[in-house]
Design a protein around this nucleic acid. Structure first.
Length: 263
DNA sequence: AAAGACACCAACCGCGCACCG
DNA sequence: ACGGTGCGCGGTTGGTGTCTT
């Protein structure tokens, strides 16, 4: 028995959406909210598949969608995240507010793939060392101190800002506590560092927690890393939260190798 | 100016997962 | 525990615009 199609294909419009269809869908969702995609075409009077409606809304009509002109900082972040995550476009998109997975995927395929391949000729589409969010295990995270000013941060440098306002001892303590409390199997441990120490660094084992868990974790929030990104914005646009290329949170190759180590 | 090649990107497709009864 | 349903994801396709010859 095959899988039932998501909707009957007969009598449905296909291809590019018209302005009228866009308006109908927008009006309907603004009135009734997102969700229930399968029922939207019928209720809104659209001759479209529910999936198609969802895609159109999420990738094009949604009000907070930022279109076009992917900045240098965004491009930089996409490359870095792709290096970490591979083709996990939705995860990458989550770190780029206003950008959709489809847009990032297209941008990668049309612009960045060539660029990255050119820089790293031996790379395949899915770079070695990407974090597979399900199959791979992340066993440790190491946060290194900020490099000296004159030292240019590389793709392999993970940076945490020095300013106490962004990351103070309380936050670090809270981060450790919150992340540990999220570990229900006791697999996680973390040494709380002294951030005033000149060789401040944090290293902790995170057991079976995935990359997704890290991004969504209280730890990430407690470390105020999203604010760190905002502080680093270089575009001058207050809606553009993205930092300059030397201010990103990155993971060293060593860490990545450790994460993907098959145990 | 015309035709072919190439680039871009919106949309489609099929699969897997989560949820619910 | 199981099957059905809805949703989200990543890969792919195809239409359209732009560039090159």
């Amino acid at each position: 028995m095959g899988r039932a199609p998501c909707c009957a294909k007969e009598g449905l419009n296909r291809g590019a959406w018209t302005v009228v269809e866009d308006n109908i869908l927008t009006d309907y969702i603004q009135t009734h909210g997102e969700g229930g995609w399968r029922s939207i075409p019928k209720n809104a009077g659209l001759k479209r598949c529910g999936k198609s409606c969802r895609l159109r809304w999420l990738n094009y009509l949604k009000p907070d969608i930022k279109r076009g002109n992917i900045s240098h900082a965004e491009e930089d972040l996409i490359i870095r995240l792709h290096r970490l995550l591979g083709n996990r476009w939705s995860m990458i998109a989550k770190r780029l507010p206003g950008r959709t997975d489809n847009e990032i995927k297209n941008y990668w395929n049309t612009n960045l793939r060539k660029k990255v391949k050119g820089k790293e000729p031996n790379k395949v589409d899915e770079p070695a060392g990407v974090i597979r969010t399900k199959a791979f295990r992340c066993t440790g995270v190491f946060i290194a101190p900020q490099p000296p000013k004159e030292e240019t941060a590389t793709l392999d440098t993970m940076v945490v800002p020095e300013e106490p306002s962004m990351m103070n001892q309380d936050l670090v303590n809270n981060a450790a506590t919150s992340l540990e409390s999220q570990s229900n199997d006791g697999a996680l441990s973390m040494a709380v560092p002294d951030i005033n120490s000149s060789d401040f660094s944090m290293h902790f084992d995170i057991g079976d927690h995935s990359q997704t868990d890290i991004f969504d974790s209280e730890f990430w929030k407690a470390c105020n890393l999203d604010n760190v990104l905002e502080e680093g914005s270089t575009s001058g646009d207050t809606n553009d939260p993205w930092p300059s290329s030397d201010q990103f949170l990155m993971f060293s190759d060593e860490m990545i190798k450790d994460w993907i180590k098959d145990d």
